[in-house]
Design a protein around this nucleic acid. Structure first.
Length: 977
RNA sequence: GCCGGGAUGGCGGAAUUGGUAGACGCGAUAGACUCAAAAUCUAUUGAUGGCAACAUCAUGAGAGUUCGAUUCUCUCUCCCGGCACCA
């Protein structure tokens, strides 16, 4: 066979490999084990995607290399076949999901086999197989028994198009991840899995596994762990104030309820439309009279006064144009106010507009002269305690800056019994903050200040305690809210260090006069950075970290860790999933199916369309639904919800270790063997070329590659299940995967996502026919960095194809020439290539590994194929993980009887790799001017001597002073003139 | 908004601890072979100027550190992915 004909050799070797069982993993072996894993595919009707080939080839390369390094390798394959795409297709076509699944897996299997992946097909699994899902149900029962699977009535994300409840993770931008329909909230009884019980361990154990850093970051973000403090605020309802003596706490209103009702609207209107003078004074008072709390257009008796500071009993009035009759009235008014215990100061509108600072000065003088007595009016002095509200905060240090409490609408309703008509709607784009004053007041435990309590739309009930303290000066959201509702802003953290002259001088100014700082914050927004405390009485001067601890202690706060992660909604109201093995008995409640009766088989139904009521189609099958309670034998109904398709994939890698076991989900022996980290292999048997972290980490699958789209869902769920099984002592490791990497997506030629609707999907079958599996594998590894997205280009496939053809021709030349005396340069290059390819494979830099092999072939051609058969075979070994068929064919053509897969992975000789002649570069002022070749160990002096006698150097340095010479060994010399 | 990751020829992409920018491949141009085409082989291929030796300019934009910056620091623009009122 002179011509490279992929059609002949690929089929041939696939058959031989299968017949000889070369890729079958042994459950017992003297060799160290290696478990490499890809995400098992969902067998969709569209057939295999080129993206599958990319990740499968990558792990195939690693698996093949490991085998040659002397490992007993498990590289398994199976089908993640439950779920919506199949069911939807079945509904559309009327073909039963079982048949659809079978047809699709047949297609996929054929396609995967045509690519020559070294899977152990004897362990093939399918999540829809009763023998498989029996154990999925079994694990569910264990969760149920431990109280980790429970039923709860709750609002779920409901997709009206798919008619299915979705987990939070399946909602993208408020729409169904699959069909894009806007998700609705629906209250339903749902099965839940208590993944939050494992939140802490799922978070912390990430430190011990070898995942790509970005995967760890995404997992951490999703779990969303934050350490904070719970602080209790007393809640007081001032409107329930009672006259002194009658209630617990003395307190009064400044008017009575009747008058208040009459005047309330007018006061509000006046507040909205202040006169110019009033506006100016209000701004100054709010800005500069920080120590006192003023109110405007406040009702006292039957009057509405312009401004009042209740704690000092000072009323400030701004008079308009003065008419005589008005004067009389004012006199009367002042008199009555004074009788009620107030002091009244009056200014004219003119006065205020012309000299506002004078007016302010007078107000402050008055207020300072006022006696210290506090009038028994309002300002939180009165009211009835309603208990406590617990807030959660990570910023206990800012407690003195809290100027309001914000609670989730649900919580506000719980406390007051009132509905404030506010909803937390996370789906909205418009994130305007809305709040309603509940009328309640909360007592800041740090300084006793009474602050208002708002029901708001930006605090969610199910995170933390559902309540926060609003610190506008140091939280952007609180700032926005405070600005909108005119709430005071009190800075309590002063920034540490400013950078830049201007900033430093500004900071110094503000430090001397804190009112400037307050104004700065009011103008520029909240300050989030690091600093020290101000306006916080005895804690002033403390750094944030110390202050957190001290203030928490001072107010008896409780340190608490909170998570964003929510429990996992585990019910699906669909047909094509594992039935949840529980019955509902009238007498006994929820009763698990006894383990001996598993599996609860999915009944064959004619009609598996989802129901409009949102119930599972199984609910219509009276015969199946009505059953006996396993406990009391009385009438009971089966659970009709099924599991989400994350269930089967949460433990499938365990089943691979013992896929045929019908007594256990997998035997302890096999789990121990395949998951416990391998010991180093016996000395002298390969493995010199790289080092694996033997015995380190938590064990588990040695290397798991998959898509970034599964980092928050599948990865987290399967880690959760695995940890649960570990706690039951059913698996030997606390983590399922020792190492996790991810591949980049393959995009269509224009850079768009490949999709059926766009018609830009590439069909791998056609490509295999024209170019061959080896070329396709090579191309997909060569097209770009493995972890990055790349656009498809069929045109570029010709490159790898040409390369393989040249390798093919090379073998004939090598056989014919029978070279005995090696070309030293070629031999050195070969060793360099061995090193490069080995290292690049370990780091998944497949593109540069291939490029190195190409360089080698180019060089062999240039040297007229002066390559020994021995060295050519070494090259074939390097090539074999990438292009296994052609490598195996040429290997056998050169007389080898055993498969190349059973040969030992080549080593390189470090001494041999070193070049003895090195090219070094001569720079003048950093610019490349010349280059010379030196001997490997040539002395610096000698090199310099040669450089300064170099023609080009002489030309450039003639008549100039040499200021400096930089010599970098084996690299360059730079002359500065 | 926050957290990741990017931006290098016509295209996909290389470039160790800062040390020859553009490896390798695609495409393109010219030539050889051929009646011709395809395939293959050979040569050229960042831009500008020059017959040439060579020179100048070039790694998203702008500054900085350095003998020397694709690589380090700062500011900014754009693209991709993730999270999103998480307190």
């Amino acid at each position: 066979m002179r011509q490279y004909n992929h059609k002949k050799i690929e089929k041939k070797w696939q058959t031989i490999w299968e017949k000889e069982g070369i890729f079958r993993a042994q459950n017992k072996s003297k060799k160290p084990k290696y478990y490499s894993l890809i995400e098992f595919p969902y067998p969709s009707g569209a057939g295999m995607h080129v993206g599958h080939i990319r990740s499968n080839t990558a792990m195939d390369i690693i698996s093949r290399k490991r085998r040659m390094e002397g490992f007993n390798v498990l590289y398994p394959i199976g089908w993640d076949a439950f779920g919506l795409p199949t069911e939807n297709y079945a509904i559309k076509t009327g073909i039963h999901p079982i048949k659809v699944t079978k047809d699709n897996t047949d297609t996929f299997r054929k396609q995967l086999k045509s690519l020559g992946f070294s899977f152990d097909w004897s362990r093939e699994i399918n999540t829809t197989d009763t023998k498989y899902y029996k154990w999925t149900q079994w694990i569910f029962l264990q969760l149920f028994k431990k109280g980790l699977a429970y039923k709860a009535k709750m609002f779920i994300n409901w997709c009206p198009s798919c008619k299915i409840g979705l987990a939070n993770e399946e909602v993208v931008d408020g729409a169904c991840e699959r069909c894009g329909t806007t998700v609705e909230k629906k209250e339903k009884e749902q099965w839940m899995l208590a993944i939050t019980k494992y939140a802490d361990r799922l978070y912390k154990d990430l430190d011990d596994v070898d995942y790509l850093e970005k995967i760890k970051i995404q997992q951490r973000n999703w779990i969303g762990r934050s350490e904070g403090v719970e602080i209790e605020f007393k809640i007081i309802n001032p409107s329930l104030a009672l006259p002194e003596g009658e209630g617990k706490i003395p307190g009064y209103y400044t008017t009575d309820a009747k008058l208040w009702r009459v005047l309330q609207d007018k006061a509000l209107e006046m507040r909205k439309n202040p006169t110019d003078g009033e506006k100016i004074i209000w701004e100054i008072l709010r800005r500069d009279a920080t120590e006192y709390h003023f109110r405007r257009q406040h009702i006292i008796g039957r009057f509405i006064v312009d401004f009042v500071c209740l704690e000092k009993g000072l009323v400030v009035e701004i008079d308009g144009d003065i008419h005589d009759h008005r004067k009389e009235e004012d006199k009367e008014r002042t008199k009555m106010l004074e009788q009620m215990g107030f002091e009244v100061v009056r200014f004219t509108n003119d006065e205020v507009i012309k000299k506002p600072e004078n007016v302010f000065k007078k107000i402050i003088e008055k207020i300072n002269l006022a006696s210290k007595r506090t009038l028994p009016f309002g300002e939180g002095q009165g009211g009835v305690e309603l208990g406590n509200v617990k807030i959660f905060s990570t910023r206990a240090d800012t407690l003195f800056g809290a100027t309001f409490i914000a609670v989730a609408p649900e919580l506000a309703k719980k406390i007051t019994g009132k509905d404030f008509g506010i909803k937390v709607d996370t789906d909205r784009d418009n994130k305007e903050k809305i709040g309603v004053n509940t009328g309640l007041r909360a007592k800041n435990p740090a300084n006793g200040e009474m602050i208002p309590v708002f029901a708001v739309n930006y605090v969610s009930a199910d995170y933390g305690t559902g309540a926060i303290m609003g610190v506008p000066a140091h939280d952007e959201r609180d700032f926005e809210f405070a600005k909108k509702y005119n709430l005071p802003i009190i800075p309590v953290i002063f920034p540490n260090k400013a950078v830049g002259e201007e900033a430093i001088s500004l900071t110094l100014q503000m430090e001397r006069d804190l009112s400037l700082y307050k104004k700065y914050i009011e103008d520029h927004g909240a300050f989030i950075g690091n600093g020290y405390l101000i306006n916080s009485s005895q804690f002033n001067g403390n750094k944030i970290i110390e202050a957190k601890r001290k203030i928490t202690e001072f107010v008896n706060g409780k340190e608490k860790t909170t998570y964003k992660l929510r429990d996992w909604v585990f019910s699906r109201q669909r047909y094509w999933g594992e039935p949840i093995p529980v019955v509902n008995c009238e007498k006994c409640g929820l009763v698990p199916i006894p383990e001996k009766d598993l599996p609860v088989e999915l009944p064959k139904v004619k009609n598996y369309q989802p129901t409009d009521s949102g119930e599972s189609p199984l609910a219509n099958m009276a015969k199946w639904v009505n059953t006996k309670c396993p406990k009391c034998k009385g009438p009971a109904k089966r659970e009709t919800d099924t599991m989400p398709n994350w269930a089967g994939s949460s433990w499938y890698f365990l089943r691979y270790t013992d896929s045929k076991n019908n007594k256990e989900f997998a035997s302890k022996k096999n789990l121990d063997y395949w998951l416990t980290p391998s010991l180093p292999p016996p000395k002298g048997e390969a493995l010199d070329s790289f080092s694996l972290p033997f015995g380190e980490g938590q064990g588990g699958v040695d290397w798991y590659n998959g898509g970034m789209e599964h980092t928050t869902l599948h990865l987290l769920y399967s880690r959760f299940w695995h940890k649960f099984l570990y706690d039951l002592k059913l698996v030997p490791t606390s983590e399922p995967y020792a190492k996790r990497t991810s591949h980049g997506m393959i995009l269509a030629e224009g850079g768009d996502k490949m999709s059926k609707s766009k018609g830009n999907v590439v069909n791998p079958d056609d490509l295999i026919k024209t170019y061959g599996a080896d070329t396709l594998r090579m191309y997909e590894m060569f097209m770009g960095p493995f972890d990055q997205a790349v656009s498809w280009s069929t045109d570029s496939m010709i490159g790898p194809r040409r390369f393989l053809e040249r390798v093919w021709k090379m073998s004939y030349k090598v056989i014919k020439l029978k070279v005995i005396k090696e070309n030293k340069e070629l031999e050195r290059l070969l060793h360099q290539t061995v090193k490069k390819v080995a290292e690049d494979i370990e780091n998944m830099r497949f593109n540069t590994a291939i490029s190195a092999m190409m360089i080698f072939v180019n060089e062999v051609e240039k040297n007229n194929f002066q390559l020994s058969t021995f060295n050519f075979k070494t090259f074939l070994q390097l090539l074999s993980p990438f292009a296994p068929h052609i490598a195996e064919e040429l290997w056998s053509m050169l007389g080898e009887k055993k498969s190349i897969n059973n040969s030992l992975w080549p080593k390189w000789d470090a001494n041999f790799i070193k070049d003895n002649e090195i090219k070094i570069v001569i720079q003048i002022n950093g610019k490349l001017r010349a280059e010379i070749v030196i001997q490997a160990e040539e002395k610096e002096e000698d090199v310099k001597h040669r450089v300064f006698n170099n023609e080009t150097v002489l030309k450039h340095t003639a008549g100039k002073d040499i200021k400096k010479v930089i010599y970098v060994k084996n690299r360059l010399i730079n002359i500065v003139i």
